[in-house]
């Protein structure tokens, strides 16, 4: 980037270029647009300070998500506010614009889905978000959460079954099929 100064070293810039969008998307899925940028900036400030602690390779992104999660947790004063902001961000950043009819269907589906998800333990919600929205592999999530891969599989399977029951959706075989990175949504 033109004008990149000496103070922000090339290591950080490389980290930033590689992951800033995913970190920003992570934040945007959990808070408002402006705050998402601010938190993203804070995350890389922390990374800048602790550049030697940032793990290399595939683990850098989960590490950054962990920092972002912590920064957001510091900022979120209540789960209700958090929920409102997520809903707001969700509406604002609906870039897919699928058109009136699908949008209506999706909205109800989305509402039901979010309501079902809200009944899950917070940790399970976060695991689902990390896998399905952030695109982390289950191994990465397991590392991030400091649990085994099998535990992540079990939690996801259990969460989907519970959500399906809540929503009245027929159970399918896919509910217990592990989702790989390629299958995951993510950024």
């Amino acid at each position: 980037m033109a004008g990149m100064s000496n103070t922000l070293d090339t290591q950080l810039e490389a980290l930033y270029r590689a992951h800033a969008r995913q970190v920003h998307a992570y934040c945007l899925r959990r808070t408002s647009g402006e705050e998402a940028k601010d938190v993203t900036s804070e995350v890389f400030l922390v990374a800048w300070r602790r550049i030697d602690d940032v793990p290399p390779g595939d683990q850098a992104l989960p590490w950054l998500f962990g920092v972002a999660r912590n920064v957001l947790a510091n900022r979120n004063r209540s789960s209700r506010r958090h929920g409102r902001l997520v809903a707001k961000a969700s509406q604002y950043y609906d870039h897919a614009s699928p058109g009136p009819e699908p949008q209506l269907v999706r909205s109800e589906e989305h509402r039901q889905l979010m309501a079902a998800m809200a009944q899950l333990p917070e940790k399970d919600q976060e695991i689902l978000r990390l896998v399905e929205w952030e695109g982390l592999t289950r191994e990465q999530v397991a590392e991030m959460m400091f649990v085994s891969r099998a535990a992540i599989d079990k939690r996801i399977s259990r969460a989907y079954k519970k959500m399906a029951r809540t929503m009245g959706v027929p159970k399918t075989d896919q509910l217990t099929t592990p989702v790989t990175l390629e299958e995951g949504g993510g950024a």
Binding site: R21, A25, Y93, R106, A116, L128, W133, T172, L175, G185
Partner: peptide, 26 residues
């Protein structure tokens, strides 16, 4: 939607990270 996992993916509030943070904003 055939299952909850697909619904979850479709419900991603930021499906396109690049669109959410264009180059100039990056």
């Amino acid at each position: 939607m055939s299952d909850i996992a697909q619904m979850m993916r479709a419900a991603n509030p930021v499906p396109d990270a690049a669109a959410a943070l264009p180059d100039v904003e990056l």
